[in-house]
């Protein structure tokens, strides 16, 4: 038996918004420690890794490990049927081929339930090695989304260059070129408003704007984003979900021919 109760269904709505354009379907692996998901996009260029801790749920019960293949488009349809502050419960029997999703309003005057068919999906897991990244940039998630959106107007590729002075985002295309430089914030009122850089070695890598913009769909989940980079390895774009867990996106760099 698997059962998880979340006090704000809006959190799961935002999570689905953050992954539904990269993944059509995904396997949710449930265990007593929580729910995990790891899946690559169709082109095998990026990977979504999500972890929701059991302690982040109001109630969480998972008697046996369970892998649920979920069509994300179907789940988005169901999540459209609730309000952000509805309480939701997801439930499945062991070896079940359906998942039950229930919503209740806070005053419990409206209760609804939906049953969704589960799928058998081929799982292709990647072993992601522990990496000591050369540059770890923490910045406001809204600023990162703004930069990706603005610069993708000019070119398909974004160069991210990190030095101890700051981080520079650059692109170029038919109409010209664009650069945005961010320096480390010297003073800030709230930690999430600042830009901080931990660096052991300068790094400069090129990434596809299209994917970066898709990762930015996670912006509503967190005020901060963490970019981790090392030479010639995939970029990690991480959004912490308050009290619940995190979503990490990995993106393979583009390399000069």
């Amino acid at each position: 038996m698997f059962e998880a109760r979340l006090l704000k269904s809006g959190q799961l709505k935002k999570i689905l918004e953050a992954i539904k354009e990269l993944l059509k379907e995904a396997t949710f692996d449930c265990s007593d420690s929580g729910i995990q998901l790891q899946a690559m996009d169709d082109a095998h260029v990026s990977l979504v890794s999500m972890c929701l801790k059991s302690t982040g749920f109001d109630k969480f019960r998972c008697d046996r490990n369970l892998s649920m293949g979920i069509n994300l488009e179907s789940m988005v349809k169901i999540m459209k049927c609730c309000s952000n502050d509805d309480i939701m419960t997801i439930k499945a029997q062991d070896n079940a081929d359906t998942l039950t999703i229930m919503f209740e309003t806070k005053n419990q005057e409206k209760m609804s339930d939906y049953e969704m068919k589960l799928m058998n999906l081929d799982q292709e897991h990647l072993g992601i090695p522990e990496t000591n990244y050369s540059c770890i940039i923490k910045m406001p998630s809204s600023e990162f989304a703004r930069i990706c959106r603005d610069l993708s107007q000019f070119g398909d590729s974004l160069v991210i260059a990190c030095t101890k002075e700051g981080v520079k985002f650059s692109t170029s295309g038919d109409i010209g070129s664009a650069n945005v430089k961010l320096s480390q914030t010297s003073t800030f009122d709230k930690e999430e408003e600042g830009v901080t850089i931990e660096m052991t070695q300068a790094v400069c890598l090129t990434f596809a704007c299209r994917y970066l913009n898709l990762f930015c769909k996670a912006t509503p989940l967190s005020t901060q984003v963490i970019l981790s980079m090392s030479g010639d390895v995939p970029l990690v774009v991480e959004y912490q979900i308050e009290e619940l867990g995190c979503i990490r996106y990995y993106l393979a760099p583009k390399i000069e021919e």
């Binding site: 095998h44 990026s46 990647l126 995939p234 393979a252 583009k254 390399i255 000069e256």
Partner: peptide, 14 residues
């Protein structure tokens, strides 16, 4: 123009 790599170039399939 730089070419796009796949993730499997960096991480092993398990």
């Amino acid at each position: 123009t730089p070419i796009q790599n796949e993730l499997a170039e960096f991480f092993a399939l398990i």
